[in-house]
């Protein structure tokens, strides 16, 4: 090897190693929590697991609420089977429900998270197209990408800086205090320590976030800027009828193959809950959805044991609350639907 090239290669290698060791050490010393990239590959990998879904190990479709509020480990402890978490942050679950309905091999049980501001977003909205993008990726997930995913897993197990959403160059640039032009909607940035994702796509608040009331206030500001505290009335008329009809059709297809569907309204608190009640009155949306789809529905407000929680940032449960919530939810599901959740919920929840 030519000497200069060799020297340059050695210097480059040394710089990279030193930088990455320093960067990783810095992130660890700051007390950040290791989190996995909740990207298309992790979703596609999870999507592959739907074919064993049963009432004891259902498929969960929905928003971040389902990802925070159902504690998969607790559920598995109760039923002996882990649910398949297909929730996608910031999207309506309808396209994923439709995808399950259109898959002739799927005969399992689905829990649908109904967060009205996202669930009732019309076709073509950002919340709907974002979910579709994820769905479009799945059939194109090539063998090469699958191999890459499995090679990447052990790296993500050990290296914190591989968290693209928090520590990539683009993520860091977004955090720079650069003011944008007036009139431009800038997507709010969540605090660095807001959440972490596990390989099974379980999402939880970090310990640091739970201790940091400033960070919690920042997230509440984010919800406000994103309109979650706005009482503006949601879709109505033909659009709403079409949405409910499409859900009913999807449910019908799943049931025709022996599968089942359950609607769950997860808790929210304070300003977000108030806005949701005004923008999406229960009788006009939740009740109508349950009635016209003929699906069993569990609304947190109907059960004292599900409505006793306070979301620190108004929209999601803490990990400890999620564990207790999951236990109660499993018991209520079994009672309401008469589904057998295998290891018998009552054994765990006297």
């Amino acid at each position: 090897m030519k000497k200069t090239n060799f020297q340059a290669a050695c210097l480059a290698g040394t710089l990279v190693i030193l930088f990455l060791i320093g960067w990783e050490s810095y992130l660890r010393n700051r007390g950040f929590t290791l989190s996995y990239n909740d990207d298309e590959s992790l979703w596609a990998h999870t999507r592959q697991q739907i074919y064993d879904a049963t009432p004891a190990g259902p498929v969960i479709v929905g928003t971040s609420r389902a990802k925070f509020d159902i504690d998969l480990q607790t559920w598995e402890g109760i039923t002996g089977q882990s649910p398949v978490q297909l929730g996608i942050v910031g999207t309506t679950p309808r396209p994923v429900l439709q995808d399950l309905a259109d898959d002739p091999a799927f005969k399992g049980t689905v829990i649908v998270d109904v967060m009205e501001p996202l669930f009732f977003q019309p076709d073509g909205s950002f919340a709907e197209t974002s979910a579709k993008k994820r769905l479009d990726y799945y059939p194109k997930w090539s063998l090469s990408q699958q191999a890459g995913f499995f090679i990447n897993q052990p790296l993500e197990n050990h290296l914190m800086f591989l968290d693209e959403e928090r520590y990539s160059v683009n993520a860091l640039i977004k955090r720079l205090p650069i003011a944008s032009r007036p009139g431009v909607f800038v997507f709010p940035v969540f605090p660095m320590e807001f959440e972490y994702v596990q390989p099974n796509r379980q999402t939880s608040f970090t310990e640091n976030f739970l201790k940091d009331t400033t960070a919690q206030r920042e997230v509440r500001d984010v919800w406000t800027r994103m309109g979650l505290t706005s009482a503006k009335r949601g879709v109505s008329g033909d659009t709403l009828a079409h949405i409910i009809r499409s859900v009913a059709q999807a449910v019908g297809k799943i049931r025709a193959r022996g599968g089942e569907v359950l609607l769950v309204r997860f808790p929210s608190s304070d300003a977000v809950w108030n806005a949701e009640q005004q923008a999406y009155p229960r009788a006009l949306y939740w009740e109508r959805l349950v009635k016209e789809t003929g699906v069993a529905g569990i609304h947190f407000a109907d059960y004292p044991e599900l409505s006793r929680y306070k979301c620190p940032e108004w929209s999601h449960l803490t990990p400890a609350d999620a564990r207790a919530f999951t236990k109660d939810l499993a018991r209520i599901i079994e009672t309401k639907t008469k589904w057998s959740l295998q290891n018998a919920v009552s054994h765990h929840n006297p």
Partner: peptide, 27 residues
Amino acid sequence: FEKMPWWLFGTLWGIMLILLALTQKST
């Protein structure tokens, strides 16, 4: 790059690798 001092060549190479590692869009 042939005319460049080796340390400058190596530093630029290293910076590109670091930015690659930090960008992470791998697929």
